[in-house]
């Protein structure tokens, strides 16, 4: 394997991504977790650029860091609890069982081994050699191909996705604007339970129930 200059940004991005994931998983606050996720998303977008897929870069930044990330920031902000009530023991790696760690390790090893053993064939080498001359400048042809591919081969999927997104938007708006008065509800519920239990105990034959 030859050394290539593009390996430098790739390595930097990979390290940054992994660091961001680490920070995201171990952050003290939900918001921190989310903004580290956003940095990771942007970095993944640049990974796409390195992987010769600038259109994915655009989509990644537009949809992921522009849309999803904002949504998750909102979620984090709106559901953030008062720090007094947060059980400090459940933050971070505390309560992580050995099983989980073992699963994680085994999974990583498994997948890596599987991937490496799968791509260790001649087809991979040939493909890499065939594409080694390519320079990252323009993929207009590929994007046109992509557009036709999407609309000819995946039209149903795209329409389905459109409906899915529409449903998701409408459903989430409906869910989000629904107001629930928790205290009133619970009072009513408790009152109902109380009356029901009274009714049951006052029924004939319920008092002298014999334990078998």
């Amino acid at each position: 394997m030859e050394f290539s200059l593009t390996l430098i940004p790739f390595t930097l991005l990979a390290v940054f991504i992994l660091a961001a994931i680490y920070k995201s998983l171990t952050a003290e606050k939900t918001m921190q977790s989310v903004y580290w996720l956003i940095f990771m998303l942007v970095a993944v977008g640049f990974i796409f650029l390195l992987a010769n897929s600038e259109i994915l870069f655009a989509y990644q930044l537009m949809v992921y860091s522009g849309g999803i990330a904002v949504l998750m920031l909102f979620a984090g902000l709106l559901t953030e609890q008062d720090e007094l009530f947060i059980d400090s023991s459940i933050v971070g790696f505390i309560k992580t069982s050995k099983t989980q760690v073992l699963i994680f390790i085994f999974f990583a090893i498994d997948v890596l081994a599987l991937l490496l053993s799968s791509i260790n064939g001649s087809a991979y080498e040939e493909t890499v050699l065939a594409n080694s001359e390519y320079t990252y400048t323009d993929s207009a042809h590929q994007i046109k191909l992509f557009a036709s591919y999407l609309w000819n081969g995946f039209a149903e999927v795209i329409i389905l996705l459109g409906f899915l997104l529409l449903t998701a938007i409408l459903g989430s708006v409906k869910l989000a604007i629904r107001e629930t008065d928790l205290e009133e509800l619970s009072d009513e519920y408790l009152a109902r339970i109380a009356t029901t239990s009274e009714d049951i105990s006052s029924l004939p034959g319920m008092e002298d129930e014999v334990e078998v």
Partner: peptide, 11 residues
């Protein structure tokens, strides 16, 4: 799909 999932998840 992730966008839809995030929207519904947030709701």
């Amino acid at each position: 799909v992730a966008a839809a999932e995030a929207a519904i998840g947030m709701a």
